[in-house]
Computed example of a mutant assay.
Amino acid sequence: MEKQTLETISNWLKNADAIVITAGAGMGVDSGLADYRGEDEGQWGKVETETEKTVFETVNPAAFLENPAYSWNLFGKRMEEYENTEPHNGFYILKNWIKKFDLDYFIITSNIDSHFQKAGFEEEKIRELHGSLAYFQSSNNQLSDKIWKTELTGKQIQENSLKNEFPLCPSSKIMARPNVYMFRDATFVNTRTKAQEKKFQAFLDKNKGKNIVVFEIGSGPHVQAVRMKTRFLRSNYDAKIIRINPKDFKVKAPHIGIDKGALKALTEIDDFLNIKQG
């Protein structure tokens, strides 16, 4: 990374009042997690190979009800993967910057892996745009809008699905589903994510007129939910943007695009900060 780029990021952080981290699937790649549309077609490509159907036909509420054994096994595998994977050091570098520069912060992520919570970020400062695999809901939101944190592990989900035994909603007593936003999803219960959005707005109100730095990490143009938040912060709060993405990194000046993965980029910035302060 060029020294001038590092100097600019260093100055932005030193003069910032708050930091917003907007993260996509690329944030988890350095932890060993697959993204959704990577070089080998990622998770969705594997699903399409297995089913010989598009991911839109396979990962939606109707398909979930039609083939619950496959669907629960699919999500159980993801749960087990998330449970057995540790967040990479980039998460902890960001936490250290928040402490070092005395920054208010908020996390906006399209990821459903709970890895920001696992790395020790406060639950009250995280907005999960697509929900979380740690939470379940009824498969019929007309019968119940209850959301609960599951005590089942991914391995248990997979083992049970082989026996056609599926989690049940404690209120409606019918089959549950993950509280994650699927494709073509009209039954996702959004009360938890709406509460998170309300907290994010309170954070923005608190920091209106202040210096906000945004680190957009591992979010490509295919999932616009994250980039929409980045653009919103740039346009409405005059936030300074650092976009980290090995492919889709371009952003208009004076904002900064970095064509590297999450861990490498964050480590280079951190090394520079430590040298400057050392």
Rank of each mutant, 00 (worst) to 15 (best):
A62S: 11
K194D: 15
D104R: 03
A34I: 01
G154E: 11
R234L: 10
D248C: 03
N141M: 12
N73A: 07
L129S: 01
P61D: 06
G42E: 04
I126L: 08
E86R: 02
L129E: 00
K206L: 09
N89M: 10
Q142L: 15
G38K: 11
K3D: 12
E48C: 09
G28D: 15
T22G: 13
N84T: 15
R177S: 11
Q137N: 03
Q4I: 14
F203A: 02
S235Q: 14
S10V: 01
F91K: 08
T193P: 02
S31I: 10
D271E: 14
A119N: 10
R243S: 15
P87T: 09
P221G: 02
N245C: 01
T51A: 07
P254S: 08
N236F: 09
I98H: 00
S10R: 08
N211E: 13
T22F: 00
Q142E: 15
S31L: 11
L233R: 02
T54R: 02
K206R: 14
N140L: 04
Q224F: 10
D113P: 08
G218S: 12
K146A: 13
Q196Y: 09
A25K: 06
R184E: 15
K210G: 12
E122A: 13
K149W: 03
E159G: 00
N207I: 08
T267H: 06
T8G: 00
M228S: 14
S110E: 11
Y237P: 04
T153Y: 04
F56G: 00
V59N: 01
K3W: 04
K194R: 07
D30I: 05
H88I: 04
I21D: 00
G45D: 05
K77H: 12
H255A: 04
G131R: 02
D113Q: 09
T85P: 11
N67E: 10
D104A: 10
F215T: 05
G90Q: 09
E86Q: 07
E123P: 04
V29H: 00
G28L: 13
P167V: 07
V180A: 00
H222V: 11
G42Q: 06
F249N: 14
D271Y: 09
G38W: 12
N11T: 13
G32I: 12
L162A: 11
F106N: 06
N179V: 12
F91G: 12
T49F: 11
L168T: 07
S31T: 11
S161A: 15
N274V: 03
S161D: 03
D238T: 05
A239L: 03
S219E: 05
A34C: 04
I242G: 03
H222L: 12
R231D: 12
G28C: 15
T230W: 02
P246T: 13
H115P: 05
E86S: 11
E66Q: 14
I107G: 02
A25W: 06
N245Y: 02
T8P: 02
D205G: 08
M182I: 08
K199N: 11
N140M: 04
N179T: 13
L263D: 15
S235I: 04
G131P: 09
D30T: 07
F121Q: 07
T193I: 15
